[in-house]
Design a protein around this nucleic acid. Structure first.
Lengths: 241, 241
DNA sequence: TGTACATCAGTGAACGCGCGTTCACTGATGTAC
DNA sequence: TGTACATCAGTGAACGCGCGTTCACTGATGTAC
């Protein structure tokens, strides 16, 4: 019942964006508008439910994509699978993506329940990095030694404190510089998906899937995730030659 | 006259987001709603004008910030000045930023005039990278040699073609891998600003200015922009000790 | 098996509101002679 | 200096529409005895 309303509302998101009309949803369900109030106390309540669902659907998708890599030690494959899952989900449900990662809805304040759901995807990604660190992968094989040394020296106390707080919550034991590279990669992933989806790649990048993969490979390099087959020194070897 | 309408409309953006009301703007100007039609043919026309203005205002800000670095060879300082200008502008005018870099307005299609204006900021940033290349800075001093070699090998034909097209338009002569790192940095910059502005840093990053600076320093490392004072090997030295 | 009653999903009318756009108009300002 | 006329910024009423939310209600379904 409430699930059906949400399903119709999700369709409306595609055309109306966040200024979703409760009356329009009711109309499409063959109901009178006041009937919706039996299921949702207000339009904002419906919106909140959609936001929560979107965060959870994305989180679930990412978790599943990561879990589908059966050899858990293939850390780069896990990273690529998880980030590709984000992009694929965003392309499949652009309105839901925009709802959670786009501009805030004017006049709408997300209730605190959404915070935990919002964390689901970043936490899934962080777990991959934590596994990499636990398995002894040297942090960032791809940054030069000098750059890596600098990275730690460069951190101000305030940023370090932020990192330490998240570290303790999510990935205990991970060095702050490593977490920093993880957050950098997280930003790069959402930045790439958002710029593509919001139209900033028009007339610049046409090969979007390949470009995304390339960016995520670069981020894997940055985080020091080992090449998928550990046979080639620093060279990636999956997919030919 | 039209400038005043746009000024009031910009204030409305702050509260209403993109579902800006033409009647509301007229009301605030002490005019009757139909009077606005003497200056803008429709609500969408007004929106288009605001989008154009926003792209140009941001572009101008970035160009000015770059130009303010009088020693043009201080490439890292120019990069930091330009990217900080983006963030500062976005924080000062969040609604205008959301209008151009947030989720697309439902039912609104940006006319082609906006494309040239949209390019202004990326072009200003690309120029810094082109100057770095022209002055003989080795591309990406901070990636390990193996990683940098990989970067070129990793590019597929399609991505390479995209890069070549942009290169020929904007920064003739720049190697594709170097442009790629520039685009990566461009994405990182807008990703960081957007995630901050759209609320994804809540409960994660509090020291936002310092964090942003750190990310942009990292990107400068990635692009191989030399440290601000060329006296310290690989170590950054501006700002003490 | 049959009646009385409670539950509750959905109705329909109404509230007060705001919107974009049109159209014939007023009335001040400026120009031409 | 004075009159006649054109320009044009802004008015006011109206069009048809949609919205979120409320409230008293109907009528089917299910439960209790």
């Amino acid at each position: 019942m409430t699930a059906e309303i949400k399903a119709v509302a999700r369709q409306h998101l595609e055309t109306d964006g966040a200024n979703l009309s409760l009356r329009g949803v009711a109309r499409d369900m063959g109901m009178v508008s006041s009937a919706v109030y039996r299921y949702f106390a207000s339009r904002d309540d419906l919106l909140t439910a959609l936001i929560l669902d979107a965060y959870n659907a994305l989180g679930e998708t990412v978790e599943a994509a990561d879990a589908a890599v059966t050899d858990r030690s293939r850390l780069r494959a896990r990273w690529l699978a998880a980030t590709r899952a984000v992009r694929r989900w965003a392309l499949a449900k652009p309105a839901e993506y925009a709802l959670i990662y786009g501009s805030p809805v004017p006049g709408y304040a997300a209730p605190p329940d959404t915070i935990a759901a919002a964390a689901r995807t970043p936490v899934a990604l962080a777990r991959i990095l934590a596994d990499a660190h636990a398995s002894g992968t040297p942090p960032s094989t791809r940054l030069s030694a000098a750059a890596h040394e600098d990275l730690a020296a460069q951190l101000t106390d305030a940023v370090r404190a932020d990192l330490a707080r998240t570290r303790d919550d999510v990935v205990p034991g991970l060095p702050e510089e490593v977490l920093l590279l993880g957050i950098t990669s997280w930003i790069q992933m959402f930045g790439t998906v958002s710029l593509e989806l919001f139209g900033q790649f028009n007339n610049v990048i046409d090969a979007r899937e390949e470009f995304f993969d390339q960016q995520m490979e670069l981020m894997a390099d940055l985080m020091g995730l080992p090449p998928t087959r550990q046979d080639g020194g620093g060279r990636r070897s999956e997919g030919g030659t």
